[in-house]
C-alpha cells in the first residue's frame, strides 16, 4: 500500500507530513521521520517530496548485508532493528531518497506504509493507494 506523490506542484512546504511520519513512528519531531520535503533550489520554485513508494523488489533490502530489511507483503520493507548494524547501505540504495536516518539510534527510519503522511496532507499532494 504505497504512498504516491500525486502532484508536488501543490506542495506548500508545511512539513505537516514529516511530523505525521514522526508520530507514526511514535515520536514527536523530525528525527524519526522518513518522508522528506525540500525546496527545488529556493522556495519560489516549489517543493519536491521524497517518500517510499513501496517497491515490490526493493533495492534497499537487497543492499542490506545483514538481512535486517525483510520484504513486506504488498510492497516495501520491514526493519528488524536487532539485525541492523547501521551501515547505511539501504539509504544509498534508495534512489528516491525515501529512507530517513535516526542519529540517536544510528539506524534507518523505514516507511511502515501506514499512509499517515497522505492522510494529513491538506493539499492532496500525496495519495495512499490501497493495492
Amino acid at each position: 500500500m504505497p504512498v504516491l506523490v500525486k502532484d508536488a506542484n501543490k506542495c506548500v512546504g508545511c512539513l505537516v507530513c514529516m511530523f505525521s511520519c514522526g508520530r507514526a513512528h511514535l515520536a514527536v519531531g523530525l528525527e524519526s521521520s522518513c518522508i522528506k520535503v525540500r525546496s527545488q533550489g529556493g522556495i519560489s520554485r516549489g517543493f519536491s517530496v521524497f517518500v517510499c513508494r513501496g517497491c515490490e523488489d526493493p533495492p534497499c533490502a537487497r543492499a542490506c548485508p545483514e538481512n535486517a530489511l525483510v520484504v513486506r507483503k504488498g510492497g516495501g520493507v520491514l526493519l528488524r532493528e536487532d539485525f541492523c548494524t547501521g551501515c547505511g547501505h539501504c539509504v544509498k540504495a534508495c534512489i528516491l531518497d525515501a529512507i530517513g536516518w535516526n542519529n540517536n539510534k544510528n539506524k534507518p527510519v523505514i516507511c511502515i506504509q501506514c499512509g499517515e503522511c497522505a492522510k494529513n496532507c491538506h493539499y492532496k499532494v500525496l495519495e495512499h493507494r490501497k493495492t
Partner: peptide, 10 residues
Amino acid sequence: RIACSHCPVA
C-alpha cells in the same frame, strides 16, 4: 502558495 514549517494554513 507556501507555508511556514509546521503550519497547514499556507
